[in-house]
Design a protein around this nucleic acid. Sequence first.
DNA 1: TAATAAATGTCGTTT
DNA 2: AAACGACGTTTATTA
Lengths: 260, 260
Amino acid sequence: MNKRFRLLETPTIKQAYQIVHKGILGHRNIIIIGNCWVEYNGRASSKLEPGERIVIIKRDGSVLVHRPRDYAPINWQPPGSLFKTMIRNNSIYIRAYKTKENESLEIIFDKIYLVASLRLIDTGEFYLYASEKDMHDAIMIEPSLIEEGFNPLVMERPVESGFIDILGVDNKGRLTVIEVKRKIAGKEAVLQLEKYVKVLKKSTGKKVRGILVGPEISKGVQALLATLNLEFIPVSPKDCYEILGIGRNKKITEFSLDEI
Amino acid sequence: MNKRFRLLETPTIKQAYQIVHKGILGHRNIIIIGNCWVEYNGRASSKLEPGERIVIIKRDGSVLVHRPRDYAPINWQPPGSLFKTMIRNNSIYIRAYKTKENESLEIIFDKIYLVASLRLIDTGEFYLYASEKDMHDAIMIEPSLIEEGFNPLVMERPVESGFIDILGVDNKGRLTVIEVKRKIAGKEAVLQLEKYVKVLKKSTGKKVRGILVGPEISKGVQALLATLNLEFIPVSPKDCYEILGIGRNKKITEFSLDEI
DNA sequence: TAATAAATGTCGTTT
DNA sequence: AAACGACGTTTATTA
């Protein structure tokens, strides 16, 4: 009786309880579809009144309560939750809690349309391209993305209160700070850049260029950029993707090694 | 043949395709469990190699690809996606795309353990307590949370580049800006508060008090707070929750009738 | 539509 | 454990 997939359609509460209870003990993935209500207490408190929902309990102890709409779960519990289940009033009580964080989620089902307990096998790799880090790499490989004669020196240079994405020297020998954004750069990006420029000005005593790099800059902050004497140079993630080469697949799990 | 729940265990690709295709057309909620691989192109690009996953397609056009672990979906598409489905090489292709944002998610299943098409009915209300807004309300109702004699004047007061959470006058008649955080206040909170104080100082020409309110302040920024001549007063979400009263239920979402 | 701030943000990494 | 920044953040609100 250790099948990879156990599934019951419109089970009784008792039958469903068996599946859920054993599934949680066996660290399986569980899906429950039925009528339920939910209470959450922790960083905030919430109450969800009865309705038909999809609940997923994962083997790492994460819980998701999904309504028929919306990307985000209406209630959830992060990985590492502990569980307590019971039957009362012909309903299934599922409590997922974290003692240290003092957070608890209680889901009560009084009608179940489908319950499944699964041992899923998923070893597939996940690759993500054209992340902000990829953009850094692309600029290091092809500095002319910034401007002719730009000479990048170091990536991820630590300074007080943060990291300078790229630090380099321009074609006139001026120290240049580059702040990279993968999407439209807003006020925070400009302020971040200004902060690094300030720090470097102070520590070197010389003039320092600050360049914001990204696909676009939000209209509202162009004035701020000018006021602070900073520059914007448009570079899209796509440009970087192409420079890195279509064949270059960067495994997410290998980022750290790659970086060093 | 318009049952609220349609479900097939280990269907053929053709059978599963029928369920998925019709389900998407009928704006139903769809769950697919099986072996799949995924490609995403949009703000970034990603590739997920084959494995067994749970895919949820919701009636609002959101898509979630869940691995057996982790709270977050490994791939997804926000609500409002358009769909294209087809069979090729005895596999089901599901493309969820957004033309305007130029984002596309392609999921390919070659083996399906379970497919379900559901018309879920969920009209239950959702209530959330002790949000940051609740904290604002509590301070307006019980200003002594800040200090004796504090007199709050306006909430959400717009100023250039943002909103002052609460603007009031202290027991010595000084204009006072209050910035509320529901969790440990970090550097951003202090800088935000300072920005608003600065703006008000400039526009009034008078001295302005700035008070950061929240459950806690991060250790590192206490010095910054002092330097900027700002104050911190501890108030927890729980305090506010109690002032607002257990009976006070705040409606977050009212589901429209198109749910039915 | 763009911009801005909140979120039970989550998820890493570094101190 | 706390702090800090990035995220395909998402979501809501407002100009």
